[in-house]
Design a binder for these strands. Structure first.
Lengths: 253, 253
DNA sequence: CGTGTTATTGACCAACATCAAACTTAGTGG
DNA sequence: CCACTAAGTTTGATGTTGGTCAATAACACG
């Protein structure tokens, strides 16, 4: 019954993620492995949680890409973060009872719901887990701040370069993504909604990034031709991701 | 020994703030009152904490306005939040050891430093305090998200209207601010850095807001002439502040 | 294959930035 | 109390990034 990482693959993803940002005791790992998961498959474009909901479970992403977004008055959408396997996307629901935004599957997704009560019990028994989960919500906030700085003060070219650096780094930190690139499982319109741009402009900037030989984009794949060039174009410094050194090293070429 | 709110005025501000977002037991209130505070007066334009620091205390604002900001590659500044009396501005330092941004006094400020150890001890003894502080960091994150949506998708006019609604609501929620307005203790350049604009453009938009009879700005004061107009111009809905009903009602005209 | 989605490109436009200068306000020191 | 100064506000002229509108091309999937 025990998988290669000492639990079901769903638990393993979560443990890998928590290990990328915090140090877990063996005891805590076992507690995570015992968390009850209610597994579900969601089609693309379906909401996982919606603004106004009062969830009683948290949602762990097992497979696929998820977006956190708000809809504004004139129907515009702002995506505030992308999430990948291992992320628990609504830990905040533990303490903020009403959702002030929505979460949506961008690709077909495997997700696992964990009752708030089970998480609370695990945290009570293992304060290190409490630290890890709180820390995780703080890292999310740090990413919000970095995105805010990008949207407010960086050019479209810098923003897209920065986004690619961030996604690549985050995927590598949890053992996904390849040596020199990653599969970008979102459309240009979704990039636009994340960066405060239009899809037309995203398309033009991507062309420029290709022409500058920073990336190649065969199909849905982003192949990084020149990491240092992309990093400096995007003014990317991964400190704000607060990754542990071990996880960060996964990125180096 | 007990003041009007049952403690020194510095503690009272913090309690008032925590009460605006969470329900505190009398026991927890007493624990907050016993938190050791190291008081300091800071001149305007001085950093309270800087990017790269590894603080061992948290900073409570007792008087004045504070900005959270990042400096980017080309010397541009993005302000990510404003803070007022009662806010603990770097609770995240409890779990993220290295600051990924800075905090700066915009006005002369009274601040109180609280050792991490004292906060941790209080939270261990009173789990409700732990909930309240975690919740506070989650509300901060909710505000980041709202600002991100504004910078990414709202016009300059909407953003400024929204900011004024937010500041007014937050000041009222902790018992500061007047019936129909508040003292705006920041410059137009600082508004610009918060909203991803230039000070020139902020100035022009303020003129438009005045001409539309939404506000008056005698000196540093923002007088709200038409709350409903300002609210709808800024597409402001206070849900994301996650204020308790009692605190929210302080805003109604 | 067809049909809907996504990507790409062009022509034109608007919001906001940049540059520069004048004006107002708030301190500061004599 | 008044000059002097520095900071902040206001305004105009002009430039640029990125938006809008629209059409076509390339995919993806049943």
């Amino acid at each position: 019954m025990e998988g290669p990482a000492g639990g079901a693959p769903e638990h393993a993803r979560l443990i890998r993620k928590l290990r990328s940002i915090a140090d877990l005791s063996p005891d805590a790992v076992r507690a995570v492995e015992r968390l009850p998961l209610r597994l579900r498959e969601l089609p693309a474009d379906s909401d996982i949680v919606s603004e106004g909901d009062q969830p009683t479970e948290c949602c762990l992403i097992v497979e696929g890409w998820v977006a956190r977004y708000k809809l504004l008055a004139r129907g515009q959408r702002q995506i505030m973060s992308f999430h990948i396997a291992g992320d628990i996307v609504d830990l905040q629901g533990l303490h903020l009872k009403v959702m002030d935004h929505s979460l949506c599957a961008l690709t077909p997704c495997g997700v696992a719901f964990i009752p708030h009560a089970a998480l609370e019990e695990a945290m009570r028994r293992h304060p290190v887990l409490q630290t890890a989960f709180w820390r995780d919500t703080l890292v999310d906030a740090a990413v919000f701040r970095e995105w805010m700085a990008g949207i407010g003060r960086r050019t479209a070219y810098q923003r897209i370069a920065h986004l690619f650096c961030e996604q690549f780094t985050r995927l590598r930190a949890v053992g996904l993504g390849d040596e020199n690139g990653f599969e970008l499982r979102i459309t240009q319109a979704e990039i636009a909604d994340a960066l405060g741009l239009t899809s037309v402009h995203v398309n033009r900037v991507l062309k420029a990034l290709r022409q500058d030989r920073l990336i190649e984009t065969p199909g849905r794949y982003v192949n990084i031709l020149n990491w240092e060039g992309l990093r400096s174009a995007g003014d990317f410094d991964p400190s704000y991701l607060h990754l542990r050194a071990a996880a960060l090293n996964e990125r180096s070429p």
